[in-house]
Design a protein around this nucleic acid. Structure first.
Lengths: 127, 127
DNA sequence: CCGCATCCGCGAGGATACTG
DNA sequence: CAGTATCCTCGCGGATGCGG
């Protein structure tokens, strides 16, 4: 079946492209940038303010990666002072939706998780 | 409203518990362990074989975190040689489902993403 | 077989200063 | 305003040996 267009991905294999994608996705700042852009386009400084504690380096780096992977578009307005807008692409919007489910789920279960953490620590001391 | 049980989480704030949870989740090995456990219980060595390239240290560490947060249960059989089984809790199974959506989505769009990456690199050289 | 202890390299990522 | 450049630290994560 040399003409088989159905390629079997295996995320568990390090060399598999889907593994690479996963590695990119499994990132705190990337996640937060996507969340911040979901409601609509935003400027660089908007993002910097919204993402508490992000350094310019990490913000830029994250935006570049997302742009590279086609998740966001970058629009530069040739004015002084500079004006740059970032916006989710249709593809990126899909991903943002999935990540949002994750965020909502997390928030819903925070109390449960925190309780589990405390119980675990307590037992660690005791045991 | 001192008796208000409705706490407003903000994942963008570093101190917010939901931010902490996110930080934990945004992790490649954690993600893969969850995926590996979704079909059912597995032994330590099973996981080690399945997750290509994982070191015992990272595997153990990841399993501990997941156990701490109540996502998996750890069952030790007091036999020689040792026998330990890991299994998703109901809570963990929910999370695994969400992560699976993400994995499937990623695999579906791998070609698109790869193409975008190539285009980006090409333009970087040119531009 | 499970997994802890230890050592270590290295690069992710933070802080800061600076420029078009 | 939107980044880039630079320095530096810290802990992630790999490798290995051992112990129950």
């Amino acid at each position: 079946m040399e003409s088989d267009t159905y390629y079997s991905y295996d995320t568990f294999k390090r060399a598999c492209p889907s593994h690479t994608v996963l590695e990119t996705l499994a990132n705190k700042w990337l996640y937060l940038v996507m969340a911040a852009l979901k409601p609509g386009k935003r400027r660089y400084s908007d993002l910097q303010r919204k993402l508490e504690g992000v350094s310019p380096k990490m913000l830029t780096q994250t935006l570049r990666v997302l742009e590279r992977d086609g998740m966001i578009s970058r629009k530069v307005f040739p004015v002084v002072p500079p004006h740059v807008e970032y916006e989710l692409t249709p593809l990126g919007y899909e991903l943002a939706g999935l990540l949002d489910h994750l965020r909502i789920w997390s928030e819903t279960h925070v109390p449960e998780i925190m309780k589990s953490r405390e119980a675990f620590e307590t037992q660690a001391e005791t045991g």
